[in-house]
């Protein structure tokens, strides 16, 4: 564990808490893509099956349980509790366009052809593109609430900080995982356009709006 990895985890935790608080306090999930949240639940479920097979640390276990539980709680809030506020007309990205290619890729490019490892690989690939329905929704409506921008920024920073962590681990531990690194870079690149808008608009006190 190094400071970059820890900051990445904290950023990830913060993103989830911001999202849950936004929905809970405003009693609304307007502007939030339920499809991205379903994909994230799928990501955590398939990745953290190793909770049953290997133990890393109490920290590791606690975070995994939190990520799984919070992802299902978010889906519950969007699709059941506050479903009247869910913006389904703008959440039209087709999940199968992401899940199916990623599934094929996980079977072809992985470290080991075993069920758990293929599911882990699938979750790494899926996470890298899981935010696309949300970004698609923002581009479709041309705007995002400021709190939603903070959520997206924290979520994007998490994998960006992991990249720094991987550079650090490569130099100081000789450790690297090419699947995680390439997927992590793809994931971070997808946020670049949003990062630019966040810095130039949201941090200057304006709402995030896209040019028509």
């Amino acid at each position: 564990m190094n400071v970059f990895r820890l900051s990445g985890d904290v950023s990830h935790l913060l993103a989830i808490l911001i999202l849950l608080m936004k929905i809970w306090k405003t009693r609304s999930c307007a502007g939030i893509s339920g499809k991205s949240q379903i994909l994230f639940a799928l990501v955590y479920t398939t990745r953290y099956l190793d909770l049953f097979t290997s133990f890393i640390s109490p920290y590791n276990t606690a975070m995994k349980v939190f990520f799984i539980a919070s992802s299902y709680a978010t889906i519950y809030l969007i699709y059941l509790k506050f479903k009247a506020t869910y913006d389904r007309n703008h959440d039209t990205f087709r999940m199968e366009f992401l899940v199916l290619p990623v599934l094929v890729l996980a079977f072809v490019v992985n470290h080991d052809f075993t069920p758990l490892e293929i599911l882990w690989t699938f979750s790494i690939y899926l996470e890298s593109v899981a935010i696309l329905p949300q970004l698609f929704m923002v581009s479709k409506t041309g705007q995002a609430e400021t709190i939603t921008s903070h959520y997206l920024f924290a979520l994007g920073m998490y994998r960006a900080l992991y990249i720094v962590n991987w550079v650090y681990r490569y130099y100081f531990e000789g450790f690297y995982d090419l699947i995680a690194i390439i997927a992590g870079v793809v994931q971070t690149v997808l946020y670049c356009d949003f990062f630019y808008l966040y810095v130039t608009k949201v941090l200057k006190g304006k709402q995030l709006t896209l040019p028509a």
């Binding site: 990895r5 985890d9 990830h12 990745r47 190793d50 097979t53 290997s54 890393i56 590791n60 975070m63 995994k64 990520f67 470290h111 080991d112 075993t114 758990l116 490892e117 882990w120 992991y162 962590n165 995982d177 995680a180």
Partner: peptide
């Protein structure tokens, strides 16, 4: 799974 496939990151 081999020990080096123990994924220690989240």
């Amino acid at each position: 799974r081999t020990p080096d496939l123990l994924h220690d990151e989240l």
